[in-house]
Design a protein around this nucleic acid. Structure first.
Lengths: 210, 210
DNA sequence: TCGGTTACATACTCTCGGTATGGAAGTGAG
DNA sequence: CTCACTTCCATACCGAGAGTATGTAACCGA
């Protein structure tokens, strides 16, 4: 065992714990997963877990934030590859739906998150990640005149709720990959309805108008 | 103690348990509420609770179904008072948002429900209550040509997700009653975007076009 | 009235979140 | 290097609460 610095020890242990927690929380759910099991999967014991995390919910919160970082990074990357604000928005929604095919994401973020952390905390975290990206996209679309005016954050939040439902719906479908276009089309319709009117033939303009 | 029939005993006890569970689950959340506390609040003991319900989740499920019946009945009543399918739909959405001001409803149905019962079970129950009413409303609007064609159930589910978010958003606002119109307007925009196009000046037609 | 079933209370077990304590690993000053 | 000090982590323990076993009282059907 080579000599390790304290921060290295802490980083390794917490990383192992979060990784193990992500695995178990994501597979079995928060309630059905014990701290002992997480610690064992991470190669340590309960003592280590409670040294680095105040309680079970705090460990879960770390996993939740981890998931938020993953999805928001993926969304930003997908949106950045698009030529204009509107297609970036559509692309982001599609990417979100695809991401919902990950069972761990669904269990941790969509199912357990609100119940364990509370709605307030969940949205506070999401406002710095997923919701931030979505709000920026909607704000850009509004600024470009591609979408009707309004509060971007409120609109993002409603859209986010619809997307979460769509993602769950998709994931439970018999053939998720096959069902994606249909569900995505319905989601795009929702976006299209708040598109700027009149729906002229703007280049790259909102769909659903023809 | 007058002589009671068995079904009467059962009905009274289960009703008392469900009422107490609704109170405590709604106030403190599922995880923070013990079976003993529920039983005591219902005037019985744990033995009675486990005699009538297989486990804690089954008791919660009864509360969840109870809430579903309440909201769906209220929605149907509100929609029935409207003259046409489109205004009935709008009225229903507004009524749903108002209903979200009830903390018990939010805690049981929106926060704990999915985590405790699982998404599958929750949506299965809702398909027979809230989602059924919403789907019928959307189906009627489509049939009346007030809304673009599509799968009513899928559209209802997305709309439902957006409404749940809107309801939480509303409830956490400083002045919920005051914020209701703004949030409701944004929700109506979402509906308006899937409205039938072209948006001619149909009598009682969809808003958001002016 | 009486055997059998249902409704409920009491007493118990056992899992699991959280704490207390002891020791090993790292740190910083002299 | 060394030695007091802090940080990291393991082991042993505690208490709360979900679920069970068992006993008893209330109902039911004959």
């Amino acid at each position: 065992m080579p000599r390790r610095t304290q921060t290295e020890r802490t980083d390794r242990t917490t990383a192992a714990l979060v990784a193990a927690a992500r695995e178990l929380f994501g597979r079995d759910g928060y309630a059905a997963t014990g701290i002992d099991a997480v610690a064992a999967a991470g190669g340590v014991t309960k003592g280590a877990a409670y040294h680095h995390f105040q309680n079970k919910a705090a460990l879960f919160r770390a996993v939740f934030v981890h998931e938020q970082r993953r999805i928001s990074a993926r969304l930003e990357q997908a949106a950045a590859a698009e030529p204009d604000s509107w297609s970036a928005l559509l692309r982001g929604c599609l990417t979100f739906l695809e991401h919902c095919l990950d069972p761990t994401f669904r269990q941790v973020v969509l199912l357990d998150g609100p119940a364990v952390l509370g709605w307030e905390t969940v949205r506070e975290i999401e406002r710095e990640h997923t919701l931030r990206v979505l709000t920026a996209g909607i704000g850009a679309a509004i600024a470009d005149g591609r979408m009707a005016g309004g509060d971007p954050l409120v609109r993002a939040q409603l859209m986010f709720g619809a997307l979460c439902e769509a993602g769950m719906l998709l994931a439970r479908a018999g053939d998720p990959a096959g069902a994606l276009p249909a569900v995505a089309a319905e989601a795009a319709r929702l976006l299209g309805s708040v598109a700027a009117e009149p729906p002229e033939n703007r280049p790259g303009g909102p769909p659903g108008s023809g």
